[in-house]
Design a protein around this nucleic acid. Structure first.
Lengths: 220, 220
DNA sequence: ATATCAATTGGAACGCCGTTCCATGAATGT
DNA sequence: ACATTCATGGAACGGCGTTCCAATTGATAT
């Protein structure tokens, strides 16, 4: 009973469709994924795509799952719990930095296997870290919310600027505006203009994660 | 030179359009806001709306700004810094809980006056809290990311379930699935099923916020 | 009062989207 | 060889954001 997958080498398959969708999303951004563009790229019609994929949500979920799974597979398994959480979070950050559209999708499919792996990856390491059981849920929840929250922010920023905009120029513009705010009304933001201009998103993400881990560490 | 605003009492205005848009968004969810539905509700045509509003993004930004500004106006100004941050965060949480579509929009317009008020509201209180200056940016950034991150999650959840779905039933379903996960692969999530089923989103948000504040408190 | 003119309106029309439908072609079982 | 199932590609549908424009309204000048 030969599987019908390779009756023809050039046959469509969900994998090929998802791969093409990822290329399209990376190249054109969230709005670039349309069934017409996808059909053109795959040299087929939209009906053929719908044979393999339920709808656009299904397609986005599959594409997101692919990226997330790849990211998770790269996490070294033999780190101590704290470094393990940092490594897991950073892999996710980097994956979403490279594919910003993932950030907008990731929270919508909390039952996906890839999500469960993340949830367990965080939680298991919290147990290993010695967090007392009554605090497990709070600690897990704040970490997950932070990690996915930053992901969503990144996605929003990517949607905001064109894919090729100069990030440091945009940042400098905002910083300049903050520096000129009224001193009586916005004393803090004026001070923040400098750090905002010079910061690195990835370092900043990690610094926040460490602050949260420090907070979790105070629970005894 | 009389302003032309009330030449006619029933004249269109950006305020009236935004108010109708908010009603529509609250009643029908994010997909419910269309220019056709809006025009029908205002008994006019889409062209008339475009005279007052640049495009759909402008409309959503204005609606979001309205909700956020209302929420901020309710924060008592005379609280100690820590309670002030909690109060500010809770007002935002409640506003987005009541209008979930705000959560998806809020990060897209970081230059809006309402956003600046939030940013300064958090930062100013961090200064008052005695956080040392080198840590200001990290502490501010983790708080802002967490608050807006949870907002985005709420929006995603609201998009996921129909507006009238029973939240506790949906939660119980997920919890039941987690409780049946493979014990070797998902030891943590199995333990988490109970707390997940019983938790309250608002309390959970606040618990996470307190953990982050505890982490910020360790910086000396 | 009337003429003039810019501000404003309402709705038709355009192009694109996700999705559905279906006539056709290709592989397989008998 | 046929019948059957799987798979394809493209036409067609309804709805969206947006643009366009003829008609109307109200303020102003005469």
């Amino acid at each position: 009973m030969t599987k019908r997958a390779d009756r023809r080498g050039d046959a469509l398959s969900k994998e090929k469709i998802v791969a093409a969708a990822i290329l399209l999303l990376d190249a054109e951004g969230e709005g670039g994924l349309t069934f017409r563009a996808l059909a053109a790229r795959l040299a087929t019609g939209s009906g053929a795509i719908y044979w393999h994929v339920a709808d656009k949500g299904d397609l986005l979920a599959a594409a997101t799952g692919t990226i997330i799974t790849q990211a998770l597979d790269g996490v070294a398994p033999d780190l101590d719990p704290r470094q393990g959480i940092r490594a897991l979070a950073l892999r996710l950050f980097d994956a979403i930095d490279a594919h910003p559209w993932v950030g907008a999708q990731v929270s919508r499919e909390p039952w996906q296997p890839a999500m469960l792996r993340i949830f367990e990856g965080i939680g298991g390491r919290l147990m290993a870290l010695g967090v007392p059981q009554p605090a497990w849920f709070d600690a897990w929840s704040v970490l997950v919310n932070y990690i996915f929250g930053v992901a969503g922010q990144n996605a929003a920023n990517a949607r905001l600027h064109a894919p090729d905009t100069d990030r440091s120029a945009a940042l400098a513009t905002i910083a300049a505006r903050w520096a000129q705010l009224d001193a009586a009304e916005y004393p803090f933001l004026r001070q923040l203009a400098g750090p905002l201009r010079d910061h690195d998103d990835r370092d900043q993400f990690l610094a926040g994660l460490d602050l949260i881990l420090a907070g979790i560490g105070t629970v005894r």
